[in-house]
Design a protein around this nucleic acid. Sequence first.
DNA 1: TGTAAGATCCTA
DNA 2: AGGATCTTACAT
Length: 201
Amino acid sequence: MTSYIDATWLTRPSTLVAPELIGCTLVRQMSDGCILRGLIVETEAYAPDDPAMHAYRGRTNRNQVMFDAAGKAYVYLIYGSYHCLNVVTDRDGIASAVLLRALELEQIPTWVDQKERLKPHRIAAGPGKLCRALKIDLTLNATLLEIGQPLWLEHRHPEFEQQLEQGNLSLIQTTRIGLTKGVDLPWRWYLLNSLAVSKKG
DNA sequence: TGTAAGATCCTA
DNA sequence: AGGATCTTACAT
């Protein structure tokens, strides 16, 4: 049993949504209908009054999607080379999002090269690698996260919830990675012992 | 038109 | 620890 995550569930502060997205599934549907799934194992929250957030100094062409109502993808290009995927959260007019940093893929995409296949759990370990693995680029910016779109989200399976309750799985909260501002905000979450988590923390 | 910084990744 | 790489944002 899986269930789709709708915009209502995402209409909350990113700091509440980010930890709850751990254990949920990101679904990527290619234009040919091919579907890829990955378990979300690492997230970061970006919120108003957060100096690290792209929209901290107001609306720009790049960040305007973050101000939209919850339930869209915010995709941007970083360091000229990599894309990063965010889930837009909170109410219309409030800039906030959750960065998806790592996935445990259910299957390896056909286009992943031989060298990458040697360490399958590292294929989507890191926000840039995640987008490379799922062929996510700027054309997906501002798309709705809904079934039938290129990207959508599914809730945790009951088994995952049980494992959390029983303590067989643990969520860790810590500081974010790769920033020069807002470095002390503890807004990164990851699944303990996941081999796909992008760095230690 | 110029420039500095950046929510990364890979190699050494 | 350092370099690749180039867009974005903002100043001039």
